[in-house]
Design a protein around this nucleic acid. Sequence first.
DNA 1: AATCAATTAAATCATTTGGTTAAACCATAT
DNA 2: ATATGGTTTAACCAAATGATTTAATTGATT
Lengths: 204, 204
Amino acid sequence: MDKENTKRTTEQLILEAARTVFIRKGLEGARMQEIANEAGINKALLHYYFRSKEKLFNHIFEKALAGMFDVINESIHKEGDVFAFIETFVDHYLSTLKENPFIPNFIFNEINSHPERIHQFSDKARLNFPGYKQMVEKNIKQNKIIAISPEHLLIDMLGMCVFPVLGRPIIEKVFFEDHPAGAENFLYERKQHIISFLKKALQP
Amino acid sequence: MDKENTKRTTEQLILEAARTVFIRKGLEGARMQEIANEAGINKALLHYYFRSKEKLFNHIFEKALAGMFDVINESIHKEGDVFAFIETFVDHYLSTLKENPFIPNFIFNEINSHPERIHQFSDKARLNFPGYKQMVEKNIKQNKIIAISPEHLLIDMLGMCVFPVLGRPIIEKVFFEDHPAGAENFLYERKQHIISFLKKALQP
DNA sequence: AATCAATTAAATCATTTGGTTAAACCATAT
DNA sequence: ATATGGTTTAACCAAATGATTTAATTGATT
């Protein structure tokens, strides 16, 4: 039992370390030695648990990708109100991004440099699009919002949330002259800004 | 003279090849051999023109970064109409992105993995923010648009334009079941969508 | 006490890669 | 013709890196 326990702890330790390193540096930039150090173990044990760098990477990438979709899916209620969805989604999504600011860059970079991966992990990239679409169209019929393409609306929301996180170092430099507190506050303000911006744009 | 001419041609050949490879694969992912192949020359000549990989990379990164800011700056006329700015900017920006779909990922990835670079190239990341801000605020005073933070508005526009390009492989999979034509059309539609979406959101 | 899995340290291997060098080739300008 | 500079070919070096192996240690289970 303690064996199993220790095993699980070490395995989790490795996964956490791998997550940290992979997400910051990507598959190519990550070093097995660095992951071992971060986990407080040595390289041999790393290969004892996960035979290869790629196998370890797959675990991390899979969860990161699925996690981003989960956040969206959890906000969708097909019978619900679009504005309620927007508030929940933006709040939930921005909070997730604040805690994991490097995940979007990680995912985009891996997928852009190896588009095959999207097929390899297509089962993890599952969006409840039918439910989302149904909700938007119902709200349109009920005249709660203007007629709009659900696809475009979703991309609008995602873009407005993700971009400032992706471009944070640039924004910090250009808008706030390297003043991190300014950028921090800007990201904090965004939650309310995006919500009211979307409401205004959708209002019939 | 012909010497000079040949020299310039080869140098430009190298720069174009380097641009292609670096933008697709990043600094770490790019291989000097691959750049040489792409340019139709050999490694030795590559180092004859640019002593090191880093020097060559700097040329490319510098231009890519400056180029993205240029597109924004060119649309700004401090006395102008916000809606005219939006139309020009979205049109111009999306066209640039269509021709250079890998540049945003390239820039974001390099800056996120090496934030120091933003200081090294800070002179290339020059946004005419005062001019832009003046334009937005004037339009607000004239009651042409609602009161809005110029900073947030700019990030909104950028996010809506850049995100679909960054996430194109995912969008193609999730929305269009790997049907490239669908994604192509979606990106084409976006121009009008973003413009009318912004107009609606800003209308007093 | 014997057993077995987890763990470490250290050495080693094969491969990749950025960078260098040397010798030769070739077109052109002087 | 000859000197010059761009260009090629090929070999080579040193460092980094993913992966493997071996021998030894620890610690709990039986």
